[in-house]
Every structure is written in structure tokens, then in C-alpha cells.
Amino acid sequence: STVLRFADYGPNRGVRAEAMEWMASELEKRSDAEIKIDFYWGGSLVGGRDTLTAIESGVADAGTVVGFFTPQQLQAYNIGDLPVENSDMWVGMRAIHDLSKNSETLQEEFEKSGVVYLTNFTSGPVQLICRSEVNSLEDIKNLKIRASGPYADTLETLGAEVISMSQADVYQALDSGLLDCNQNYYYSIDAYRQYEVAPYILEMDWGQNLSFGIFANKFSYNSLNEHNKNVVNETSEDFIDHFYKSLKNSNESAKRKFQEDESINISYLSEEDKALLNESSKLSINEWKGRLESNGVDAEHFLEEYYTLIDNYKIEKTKVE
């Protein structure tokens, strides 16, 4: 049997870890125990920033890759982090999965990085958690917000003061008032317990981080026999539905918990504000497009492919439901 080293930057708890454990047990079951996974949690093998390189060089056979860390090597895959109008988790994951499997641009990019794309995560839609009451985009003006990537750029154009800070400092910074708000997601607000020090949640349901997937070492993947390659491919595809269901559950139960807790306040963005948010997001989308085009990629066409997939899956989802 083959034992594969899997590197993940996060803890072995929570919804992501459970989904990965599920994937490992499915792989073992479906391959008749020919594929086994050894997890290295919490960056105990390599940190999140270095996972792509670690997979390429064979330090890890597979691992969780966050595209934000490699804006150059995974420039096109960073399409998943753009704040496009797409906050449905299933639609988003399906779209980026199909794009990663089929688009030539991405296939070339992964080939160049020496890795094989297996499947995708999502952070879920972006929310804001704050120390004081925040109900609208007007309210975030001049607030000190920790945010990242294109979301940070957009918040900045909306008048917020974006602060960079290491994740380890965030809890204390929210507590002391150094930060007013943090960009976060329902399940992770719960996991990191930031509601203890910042009891106001603004539900923005804004885009999601989809440049966030599971990749494998090319050699390790190619060493599998045809049957086991199929097992890996099928399990990877099923992973999306499985992860979607458990993430949806944990987001909902986190939200329910916050709603029931009287000390925590959830407010919702108005329709006008949502429109304004999406309008402002276009700036950072265009900036990404510019970078891609300067590297000779037809960004317009690539983005079209992505939008088409999103629209198709939106329709498919309404059919299923």
C-alpha cells in the first residue's frame, strides 16, 4: 500500500479537518486499503505559504494550497479569490473545480508549478466581525479592519483603514481595540472565538475565497495505478459535495448560535449597500485582469469561462433544489 504525506496548515479540528479525514477514509476504503494518508496538521511539516513548493518537490505528496500566498505562480488560480457576485458555496466550488480541471490556462499554470489539482475548498462568503455596532457600508468608514487580498483593496476604497496583522495577534487586537473589525467567515468566527471580544457581526455575504484547494505531487499521483487514479479523481469530486454539506451545516449552526446568544448582534447589509459593494469590487477584479494580461493571458476570455460556469451551476442548483 502507498502512504501519502498530506500537509495542512490548520488544526485537526473543525469542518475542514473533518472533511479531509473523510476524504482519507474514503480513499482507503475505495482503494481496498492501497492508499493511506498521514496528515501533518498545523504546519508541522511546512507552513501554508510553503505548501505549494513542498508538494512540487515531494516533501509532501499532497496538501492544502492557499493561492493568496503565491500570487505569481498561481496567478490565474487566484481568480477564485476575486470578489465576484458569487457567494453560493456549492456553485463557487463546482465552478472553480471545473475550471481547474478543464481550462487550458489553469492546466498550464499547474503543469508549470509541477503539481496536480485534485479538488477545492471554500472559505464561504466573507463577513465582518466588529467590536462596535456596524450596520452599513457607511459605518465602516475610518474603522481599522484586518482584511486580505482583493477584499482589503475594496474595503480601502470604501473608506476603511486596512491593517495588516499576523493571525496570532488578531484576537488580542480585537480585545484591546487596536482593530475595530476583522474579515472572517461564519464557521471560522466560531472556531477562533473572536465573538468573545467582538460581538457585532455584519453579514455581507460577499464573494468567497476559492483559490484554496488540494493539490498532489505529480510523481506521486502518476505512480498510482489506473484504478487508484480513478479512485483519487472520483473521491476528489465527491469531496466537494461532502465539504459543501458540512460547511453549510457548521455555518448555519454557528449563525444559529450567534442569533440565540443575546450578547452577539448580527446585522445585514441592505440591497443598495450590496450593489455598492459589488460595484466597488470591480476595481480589484480589473487590477487582477491587468496583471494576468501583462503575462500574456487572455484574461477576458478566462473570466468569461468562469462566469459561464457560475451561471450554469446556479441554474443546476435551482433544479436540484
Binding site: T53, F68, T70, P71, Q72, Q73, G149, S164
Partner: peptide, 15 residues
């Protein structure tokens, strides 16, 4: 040499 060949950068204002 790997860092040179990939031309990777840290996302930020200064890249």
C-alpha cells in the same frame, strides 16, 4: 534560485 525562477512576490502594496 527557485525563488528567482518563479519570480514569486509577497502580495501587498510594494509586492
Amino acid at each position: 534560485s527557485k525563488a528567482w525562477s518563479t519570480q514569486e512576490y509577497y502580495s501587498g502594496v510594494l509586492d
